[in-house]
Design a protein around this nucleic acid. Sequence first.
DNA 1: CTGAAAGCGCTTACAG
DNA 2: CTGAAAGCGCTTACAG
Lengths: 352, 352
Amino acid sequence: MTKPHIPTKPRIEDVAARAGISAITVSRVLRAPAKVAPATRARVAAAIEALGYIPNLAASGLASRRSGIVALLVPTIDNAVFAPTVAGLSDALAAAGLQLLLGDYRYSDEGERSLVRALVGRQPEALVVVGIVRDAALRAMLLRLAIPVIETWDLTEDPVDTILGFSNYEAGAAIARHLLSRGRSHLAFVGGTDQRARARGEGFAAAIAAAGAAPPRAETADGSTIAAGRRAAAKLLVASPQGGNEIIDGIFFSSDGLAIGGLIECRHRGIAVPGRVAIAGLGDLEIGRELSPSLTTIAIPAYEIGRRAGEIVLARLAGAPASDPRGDPCGDPRGSERVIDLGFEIVARESS
Amino acid sequence: MTKPHIPTKPRIEDVAARAGISAITVSRVLRAPAKVAPATRARVAAAIEALGYIPNLAASGLASRRSGIVALLVPTIDNAVFAPTVAGLSDALAAAGLQLLLGDYRYSDEGERSLVRALVGRQPEALVVVGIVRDAALRAMLLRLAIPVIETWDLTEDPVDTILGFSNYEAGAAIARHLLSRGRSHLAFVGGTDQRARARGEGFAAAIAAAGAAPPRAETADGSTIAAGRRAAAKLLVASPQGGNEIIDGIFFSSDGLAIGGLIECRHRGIAVPGRVAIAGLGDLEIGRELSPSLTTIAIPAYEIGRRAGEIVLARLAGAPASDPRGDPCGDPRGSERVIDLGFEIVARESS
DNA sequence: CTGAAAGCGCTTACAG
DNA sequence: CTGAAAGCGCTTACAG
């Protein structure tokens, strides 16, 4: 008596043979079990179990033209502020059995292009991007793809498809008004070079101009580390030769990581916060709440952005129409919005 | 004169037709350009460019049996300590054109099983896991898969295939000895419920026992948040009814996030660190270096773990043999090591 | 240096 | 409720 042969990598045919039926019925048990007789279903299940069969999702996706993949493009995975967005998206998609293919382009334009090509090659059913796709060729490519493309963490009037987030420009403006309302008049901005940080800086400067205050000084920071924040703060806090009039009394850092560096640099230099200088960041990291002084920040609904992006993807895959790119007010009333503002919140704490 | 039709989703056949050659030659241009005549290559490149052709990687993987995917399984993406490992792996794989498929099982055993099945269904060429695979059925499945499986962030004598990391048990023991050497005698451990945190706690307790000191108290923490660290610290710092003899003078938290919570709870309660209680964590987060007092911690080569894991995967895919599971000392001398200890480092700072 | 044939492991209509 | 045929978009030997 020989043991039945168990193939190392069983295919659907092996399961079918063992269950004494055809491959197509095995496929049905996996995809539409209600259409299969209970007895057959049980035999197939037993065969799957016995063989340890795991469907080849690449083959399945090729045949069905549904990959079961949603691609997510982030500037960098190594930034705590995006983690909740990834988690929110992952939660929303997991419920529908969709897998997340994560690409991290390290804030490089060239990296973004080649990464999108690599991700798109996997035939994702939708693409979620942290940020706005600016490259014209890339936009054109995504448009032709005809899959849902959800841009996030920003707003624009002409998204590729749908954008979901908040206005970085308005966030910068709001924190400027907050600092001005606290009596600060010599403000500075510390930000990264990415588009969102720049927009925050522009809004910050615009609100200051609108209030008639002195234009803000600006320092560039690499990344979102505490060390980068310290370096930028150090440059700003060196007393200028012109004297007291030029002394900065409020700094907005484009992210909490940088702002914490600012807080720490002030402590090291014996500069009182908020006594002599007020400090604010963005992201509402947990540590900012716990420091002394606690950090004023702009809270972003990061998890919510991810979750809503996932829900929009699911609705679209389930057949909801894309919104009308022409913005026709008489268009299909079911057409979803193209621009969804989830807002932000100024969280005033001890540092301002 | 009609414009040539450009298909929405061009296939390799469309490119071939436009270049006036066969599909197989297009495939060669993509995979082995040196084998194609330069003139042909140029025509194909022009056609690819004109059509915006992006190869279907699912079809390509199915035909070639090489998916170009490496799967990475992490307990949670929402934990800063693993981010460098993801980055290191991503860096190593990107150089070889391999894509990272990231799965996040949220510390749930059931989630781990179903996630592994989903990842494996994509036919990854290797699997990297943060942690040790303990589930016997899962181990058996991975063994049958016959792909490289690299477990990380821990050590064990019987990895599925290869393990790369450090001894969590020894890390706990080392930090216990450090605290004892600082004259601390009433120690406590705060840790999560995951396997690695438990191992750290066991090593901690064992070293304390070996030194003849009082056994450590232990508190469980959920996750790795500052808030969880504060809660656990608060329980430990309540003076016990028995009086001074029971007062804890040193706490090891299984991660820096928790330890920072401990630091903050002490500050709120007016408990001197390290005066009355010493505090230590694990992970060497940037913030720990900058706090006052700065945080004593166990530095883990997290980026290095990811990068080395990637290099091992690449070597194996390039044909390096798997090490002999039987550990035969006379076996193939090229066989790579099964257990690679990258060590850890006690970073003594002000908090201890 | 280039191509015709076969096949990777599935699913989609279509029949019955 | 179940199955035979055709095909998803590629690549692998094999020829020439």
